[in-house]
Amino acid sequence: MSNLKIEKGSSRRSAYDLRDPNADTIERHTLAVIVDNEAGVLARVIGLFSGRGYNIESLTVAEIDHTGHTSRITIVTTGTPAIIDQIKAQLGRIVPVHEVHDLTVEGASVERELALFKVSGEGDKRVEALRLADIFRANVVDSTLKNFTFEITGSPEKIDAFADLMRPLGLTEMARTGVAALARG
């Protein structure tokens, strides 16, 4: 709970003091939520978002401590500053939730996403796809005579850009993992 902007027991540093309370601009925030890895915990988190009408842009979850059985859920969400604060406070209320970090306001962070692309093509298109993949530092993880499967890691924007380039070159299938993020330093 230590990094909630509205701290339990002290709200001196409530988000009210940090940002314009009347702003109705939609912000994109990346939240890292540390939870007990128990049955139903993901349903609780997702149910909170659907039940209260909040957005989920992406969500990733995996156990990060196999002895303590804690998982890290990384959620990219959008909303007004007031809604973002509500989301964090509501997450903090869930019993198996230990910590809620707003990586977007807690200083610099790194965000990475992994994606697999299947690109089918022949001749020049096939060569061009391979050349662009090289520029984007995408790896070929599978190839047949008709298609390549690329693996690319990077910010969501980089993956979007790569997808835009691959589309005219024969992009047939894509799988994205959603964002994993950590605070810098």
Binding site: L4, I6, E7, G9, S11, Y16, A89, G92, R93
Partner: peptide, 18 residues
């Protein structure tokens, strides 16, 4: 006592969670 009650409906000047 519930942090999510603070600023949910009405913005307040002195939030006291406890």
């Amino acid at each position: 006592i519930d942090p999510s009650s603070i600023n949910k409906v009405i913005r307040v000047d002195m939030p006291i969670i406890g």
